[in-house]
Design a protein around this nucleic acid. Structure first.
Lengths: 324, 324
DNA sequence: CTGAAAGCGCTAACAG
DNA sequence: CTGTTAGCGCTTTCAG
């Protein structure tokens, strides 16, 4: 592929002139401008962003690490982040960590090697690895250290809201199906739910799912689901897991919401598609994504911002799996 | 951030020695090795991948362009591609085209500027832009030119299978809800379905959805759905659209599959979660993703492969929205 | 207004 | 086994 020297030679000008033209920095006569442009098109020249980045020390690239891009929640985040990054002239370097600390840590090295301008990491699983990083980092849903900002929904409060709603709908024998213990977000939801239950002196039965979003979620958790006993309300740690629970209950002939009421968490697109449609707790995913990338870009631009937790509001979305 | 010269100086060796150590190319005494490694860790040195790429002319990066990463079908593809790319030492540069030719074309320039080793583009919308690209390209679901390989499911045959199944299940008054005309994949499905219908001398009513996957799909298409008249079978261009159709029909009190049978396309994870669960046509997404990236890497490695269409088999997944 | 030259961080001859 | 040196493609002084 042609380089700047080829263009300069072909256009009969100096290499610096081409550079000035490309970056619109400094004067270039109109006459020379058209000549250069013509050659650029003829040779299909694209300035080498790598060489440019190496010099300017600004790759205009941000690393996005998510557990897995096929997880509906994270890919929606990614979509929002991409959109905003694109507007700001940044490109996305995508990494799936698979919730695997080694993979995350390896990717972290790769991102540093590629001199990305900033990093967004969702649900980090190897916090130690971030101790001596000199690239701006925003952590999503996970507390890495007191030097790193974490953005998250207010999961704790979301859990509380879920309990209050179920309680108001008359549930007094509830089950909570919680996610894998290693996820801060779902742990917070549980704490909120359980704390709220304690306030009402209600005891909650717990069932734990081993897996996060996966296509095979239902089959893999069928055993724990069999432990569902007598109850009138179930709070599930996310919408897709809730959908599998509904599926399971229907097969057993349980009527929803008449016999058992159900709530999910996330307000993902499947809530509306289910029958009955799923009452859930909304995570403001659009705002979450936008805020995360905005913070990162502020960090990149050296604006000083408070290093603290940014919690975004969760709220109830009432649908058909709960009464009243 | 430290560079190779810092390491060399601090370790009291030559710069080339450090490079040799880093790349394990040529001899370095054990003694020197440990000294270098120590300094590398002390200074948290990460070799600059940009500088390296500029020299080796191999960025070890591939550009992935998809309509939108929040589309379940494409993010599953992306997940498979990431996995395999990662195994082969490649990293992913993510681009959402939003089915917007300008955005795609702009991203294409960016990818060229970044000297990606190869490009995977799904459902391309600006075929002209690829005419003078000297980076290996694999096109997914869209024919760009006779110089570019396209990988795709056998959508045409999938459409045929869908018809045959509905016909076998006794449907004689069918509706086909087709996707936006600009998508080759959904057009092929339609053609297959319609051709098969013609073989049986059946006339099919057509309804067109304007939008592809979107959270608001149901509301946006409610008007066209109102046109659903008397029928006993519906073939919808993908699963999520099918889910919205089911939702709509339920609200109108139509019983599925007793009164109307329904089929989707994709075999996405929501099929199982719906009630009744959705009969659909499977796209071998895992194989599709794997094959696409394998072909691309072969192209990158200059292995010569046939420039032709690679069609992957689609098949019926029978569930509860169809009888028999 | 323009071009020569230095340097960004790295790799790969090539000579010691 | 090791260090010097010449680029890779680019940007940016700094003289003309």
């Amino acid at each position: 592929m042609a380089n700047i020297r080829d263009i300069a030679k072909e256009a009969g000008v100096g290499i610096a002139t081409v550079s000035r033209y490309l970056n619109d920095t400094g004067y270039v006569s109109d006459e020379v401008k058209v000549k250069i442009q013509k050659v650029i098109e003829e040779l299909n020249y694209k300035p080498n962003a790598l060489a440019r980045a190496i010099f300017t020390k600004n790759s205009k690239t941000i690393g996005l690490m998510v557990p897995n891009i096929s997880n509906p929640f994270f890919n929606q985040m990614a979509s929002v982040i991409e959109e905003y990054a694109n507007e700001m002239g940044y490109n996305i370097f995508l990494c799936n960590t698979d919730d695997n600390p080694e993979k995350e840590s390896k990717y972290l090295d790769v991102l540093q090697s590629h001199r990305v301008a900033g990093i967004i990491v969702a649900r980090s699983k190897c916090k130690e690895a971030y101790s001596n990083i000199d690239i701006p980092v925003i952590s999503f849903e996970s507390h890495i250290s007191d030097k790193i900002i974490t953005v998250s929904s207010d999961n704790y409060n979301g859990g509380k809201i879920a309990f209050d709603h179920l309680y108001q709908c008359g549930c007094r024998k509830m089950i909570h199906i919680k996610g894998p213990t290693c996820f801060e977000a779902t742990e917070d939801r549980s704490r909120g739910f359980l704390d709220a239950a304690k306030d009402k002196n209600l005891k909650i039965d717990l069932i734990e799912f081993e897996t996060d979003f996966q296509v095979k979620m239902l089959e893999e958790n069928i055993e724990s689901l069999n432990k569902i006993g007598e109850c009138d309300g179930i709070f599930v740690f996310n919408d897709i897991a809730a959908a599998t629970v509904i599926k399971f209950l229907r097969k057993k002939g349980v009527r929803i919401p008449e016999e058992v009421q159900i709530m999910g968490f996330d307000n993902s697109f499947i809530c509306e598609l289910l029958h009955p449609s799923l009452t859930t707790i909304n995570q403001p995913i659009q705002a979450l994504g936008k805020y995360t990338i905005e913070l990162l870009i502020k960090l990149i631009n050296d604006e000083d911002i408070e290093i603290e937790d940014y919690l975004m509001e969760t709220k109830l979305i009432k649908r058909e799996t709960t009464l009243s």
